[in-house]
Amino acid sequence: MAEDPQRNFRSAYYEKVGFRGVEEKKSLEILLKDNPLDVEKLSTFSQRFPLPSMYRIHVWKVLLGILPPHSDSHSLVGGYRREQYQDVLEALKVMRFVHMATPQTQVYLRMFQLESQVLPRRSDTSAPDEEDEDFLSIARAMEEIVEDPMDCYWLIKSFVNQFNNKFGDSIPHLPKSLEHYLSVEEPRLLNHLKNTGALAMLPYSLWFRRCFAGCLPESSLQRVWDKVISGSCKILVFVAMEILLSYKIVVMGTSRPEGVVSILSNMPQENTDAIVTKAIDLWHKYCGTPMHSV
């Protein structure tokens, strides 16, 4: 099919005057008019482009299976989701696991535990373990993105379940993947990390188990989660690598592994959008077709 010169001119003009996402937004709006929705096409779109903020939550719900592909069922299914949320919340109140002063993210954790049939006895409730802390970090980040508590819980629950079920076996291998790509992009930095002992101590849990929740501000984080929710955990490797590349000078000047970890775990929040943009470019460069980048 011949290219449309008018469309190409329009795209170039939009980009020149700062409206780069106009064409993509129109394409997404066309996809969202389909009934049933084509989940694969929505996934492909989310892999290739950042989702417009006005449609992000809706697309996430569809990709995570919270809403079905048939748009005419969304209202009915949304009602069922709200009823289920209220029932689980009420059960926890009756069992006195939560009360008015319980932090909302702790409420989400108890709801998740109850639905997963791993709710501890009230007498056994102790400090959250590492898996619980991963959940709470993701919950705190999602709470900053989503206003409605019911939507927030369903998105946290579905995100965590999809991530663990789909990528659970891949997560332990991501540090090695990071090492491989770093050896290609910046071998001197990799050697420094190895020689100082910092490579083994990098904040892999923060980066890979928590998908950068608590590390990146929500404005940058949601662009990374677009890719994770639509089918790629490999994007996490490239965000980690771009963080290392961005702080290369500081890291190279630090010989203590604890110092390196401290720098990377508490990095400034102002340049994270640029880091994520470069990471996505690297991800496309190495992984090619987005749908093959899992």
Rank of each mutant, 00 (worst) to 15 (best):
M1T: 15
E3A: 11
D4Q: 15
P5A: 13
Q6W: 13
R10Q: 13
V17T: 14
G21R: 09
E23K: 13
V39F: 02
E40Y: 04
S43K: 12
Q47H: 00
R56H: 02
W60P: 01
L64M: 10
S71D: 01
H74W: 11
L76N: 03
L76F: 08
L76I: 07
L76T: 09
E83V: 13
Y85I: 02
Y85P: 03
D87M: 05
D87G: 02
D87Y: 03
D87N: 06
E90R: 07
A91G: 10
H99T: 08
A101K: 12
Y108G: 03
Y108P: 03
M111W: 08
L114F: 11
S116G: 06
L119C: 05
L119S: 04
R122V: 15
D124R: 13
D124L: 15
D124M: 15
S126E: 15
P128A: 06
P128T: 04
E131H: 12
E133V: 14
I138P: 03
Y153C: 03
W154Y: 15
K157S: 15
F159T: 04
F163R: 08
N164K: 15
K166T: 15
I171R: 03
L174K: 11
P175A: 07
E179H: 09
H180I: 06
L182K: 05
S183A: 12
V184T: 07
E186A: 12
L189H: 01
L190Y: 03
L199E: 03
A200P: 10
L202M: 09
S205Y: 05
F212P: 05
A213R: 05
C215V: 14
E218F: 00
S219P: 00
Q222Y: 03
Q222H: 04
R223H: 12
S230F: 01
S230E: 04
K234T: 09
A240N: 11
I243G: 01
L244P: 08
S246F: 09
S246H: 11
I249A: 13
V250T: 13
V250S: 10
V251K: 09
G253R: 13
T254P: 01
V261Q: 07
S262H: 14
I263C: 07
L264A: 12
N266M: 01
P268A: 07
P268W: 06
D273L: 13
I275G: 06
P290I: 06
V294K: 12
